[in-house]
């Protein structure tokens, strides 16, 4: 009986006992998130992502929106005459990472978080993120923006974003890539800061809507995010990384 089991038999038997046999493939967006995280040299970003001691920002209110409409939600303040209420433009559906509170970051030295100059993105889905040095994320604080979506007011329209207005109001302006979307929280890795300082932004969508500011955030895509008084600026001031919006950021915060 000593030759009863061949190598092939042994291998077959082992395969039948393979602990990974029932392992289901990782969802595509999760796989992309993992690779994106690695390429950013950012270690595990999981639910328990609390070791960085996030700077929680004002959960109080904010809003923004999709078609570029922003309303102060929690406060029920309705519309204000500033960027929160403006006329929609053709770019309005690109704007949108709306709001919330951003971290009260007063450092604002405008130093980029990476040494490289950000490049315009075509908004591809292939994780268009620039490399970051291994130590780039070490010891940096995390900025957490709490987003509150709100019903859109069709009468409120957003004007085309103005560099002057952005410069006057934004305390933070970042280029960031969506690393993961988990429940109502979108985590973005910051690559470049025009003003303010942060390593990671977490935007929480506290509304029942599955979309953020009128569009579905997508892992691996790059966004430009501006925040004023702990609120992400909507109305076209935050949104997908597009040359037009980037030009507004560059004009608002010229390199010194």
């Amino acid at each position: 009986m000593s030759d009863g089991v061949s190598d092939g038999d042994l291998r077959d038997r082992m395969r039948r006992a393979d602990p990974a046999a029932s392992l289901r493939p990782l969802p595509e967006d999760e796989a992309r998130r993992l690779v994106a995280g690695a390429a950013l040299d950012l270690p595990v970003v999981r639910k328990s992502y609390t070791r960085r001691v996030p700077v929680l920002i004002g959960a109080a209110a904010v809003v923004a929106l999709a078609a570029g409409v922003v309303v102060l939600a929690n406060t029920g303040a309705g519309h204000s005459p500033d960027w929160r209420v403006a006329l929609p433009t053709s770019e309005s559906n690109q704007s949108g990472l709306a709001t919330g509170s951003g971290a009260p970051d007063g450092s604002g030295d405008g130093q980029p978080t990476t040494s490289g100059r950000p490049r315009p993105s075509a908004g591809t889905t292939s994780v268009p993120v620039p490399p970051v040095s291994p130590s780039a994320s070490v010891g940096r604080k995390t900025t957490v923006a709490v987003l509150t979506d709100s019903p859109q007011d069709p009468d409120v329209r957003c004007p085309k974003p103005q560099a002057g207005f952005l410069a006057e109001n934004a305390g933070m302006a970042f280029e960031a890539t969506a690393l993961k979307i988990e429940g109502n929280v979108v985590t973005l890795q910051v690559h470049h800061a025009w003003i303010g300082e942060a390593d990671v932004i977490e935007v929480r969508n506290t509304t029942a809507s599955p979309v953020l500011a009128g569009f579905a955030p997508e892992v691996g895509r790059k966004y430009l995010v501006a925040a004023a008084d702990a609120e992400v600026m909507g109305c076209g001031y935050s949104g997908l990384d597009e040359p037009g919006l980037r030009a507004v950021y560059d004009e608002a915060f010229p390199k010194r």
């Binding site: 993992l34 995280g37 690695a38 390429a39 040299d41 270690p43 595990v44 970003v45 999981r46």
Partner: peptide, 11 residues
């Protein structure tokens, strides 16, 4: 955790 770390090291 190790998968994430592995990808990071690979990068």
């Amino acid at each position: 955790d190790v998968l994430s770390e592995t990808l990071l090291v690979a990068w």
